[in-house]
Amino acid sequence: MTLPVTTAPHFGAGGGSPYATALRSGGGVLRMVDHDGVHGAPVELARFLAAADDADRTVLVRAEGAVLDIGCGPGRMVRAAIVAGHLSLGIDVAAAAVAHAHAQGLPVLHRSVFDPVPREGEWGTALLLDGNVGIGGNPTLLLARCAELVRPGGLVCVEAHPDPRRDRGFRATLIDHEGRASLPFPWYEIGLNGLRRRAQDAGLQVEETWSQDERVFALLVR
């Protein structure tokens, strides 16, 4: 039985579908623009489509048990977790990303983290990388959902914004170099300072933080 996928606006969907177009064409750089017209960091699809890098591997060496990659995109971390010996599953709301992962034979489901997920409460580690702590525009709600998905003592690994003071929600639009734009969707950027507070509110405790190649991570424990 196929479960319904959440239909709320999400990362790069609708409009000119720049995210889907970039995935199908094998890469490209998108820009995330907020509702005030402020341009954020570029979204480099080549990294999503490439193999896991050194920073990604610092996450996997800390992972325990079965790994759930939330907002997995084309599936690089799903593949890397399997290679590292973990049972792994990815979930994503972008049909193009799921299709790309399926073409590689990767176990990825087309659904939202807020929809029913297999093995709820049993995952050893949940991943929120590549800014995916912004999913839904409410980090506390998202982290609380992650706490439901992992087992007692389970881990949630979050990639935080490099600026520890960043703590802002906004409506974002993805735009590519040809001007194709997505529909607006809720998003959030949060650094370590705010993440610590939100984690506690969600029933999680920060066990460790680290950085690698200008990326910042936090390991949370249920």
Rank of each mutant, 00 (worst) to 15 (best):
W210M: 10
G26M: 15
I190P: 03
A80Y: 00
V206T: 15
A84F: 05
G153T: 10
A46F: 00
C157Q: 14
P74F: 02
L183S: 10
T6R: 15
L149Y: 02
A99L: 08
G121P: 07
G26V: 14
A63D: 08
A202W: 10
L89W: 02
A8G: 03
R24I: 12
T140M: 00
R196Q: 12
L129T: 01
D115P: 02
S17Y: 05
H100W: 09
R198M: 03
A46Y: 03
D115C: 06
M77Q: 07
V43Q: 13
R168Y: 08
A13F: 02
R76V: 06
C146A: 15
G194C: 06
P184S: 11
G37P: 05
V206E: 15
A22L: 13
L127I: 14
I190M: 04
L155P: 04
A80P: 06
L60W: 02
V38Q: 15
G40K: 08
W123G: 07
R215Q: 08
E208K: 11
P107W: 08
C72M: 05
W187Y: 14
E148Q: 15
L45T: 10
A199D: 06
G194Y: 07
L204P: 00
T2F: 01
P74K: 03
R151G: 01
R76M: 03
G153H: 11
G90K: 11
Q104C: 05
V221D: 15
G73I: 05
G15M: 08
V93P: 00
A41T: 10
R47Y: 12
T2A: 04
G105N: 13
L49S: 04
G153N: 07
G179F: 09
F217H: 05
A20M: 04
G136R: 13
P139E: 15
V29Q: 10
D167G: 01
A172P: 04
M1V: 09
G169E: 15
G14D: 13
R47P: 01
A81K: 01
A94S: 13
A103V: 11
P164C: 11
A144I: 00
L142H: 01
M77H: 11
I91R: 05
I190D: 06
L3M: 08
P116E: 15
V93H: 02
I135G: 00
F185A: 04
G28M: 13
V43F: 14
L68N: 03
L155N: 07
A218Y: 09
E148N: 04
S25M: 13
W210G: 02
R57D: 13
V113C: 05
V61M: 07
G137C: 05
G28A: 08
L45E: 09
A41C: 04
R47F: 02
G73F: 04
G121T: 14
I190K: 00
A126V: 14
A147S: 12
R171K: 04
R222A: 13
L149N: 04
L192C: 00
E189V: 09
R119S: 12
L174H: 06
S211T: 15
G153I: 12
L183G: 05
A147C: 06
D201K: 12
G65S: 12
R196G: 14
G194K: 07
L155K: 11
S182P: 03
H177T: 15
F114H: 14
G136C: 06
A84V: 08
F185S: 02
N193T: 14
H100P: 04
T2H: 03
W210N: 07
Y19Q: 08
V108Y: 11
G73R: 02
R31P: 05
D36G: 04
G75W: 09
H39D: 14
A199Q: 04
A50I: 03
W210Y: 10
P162F: 08
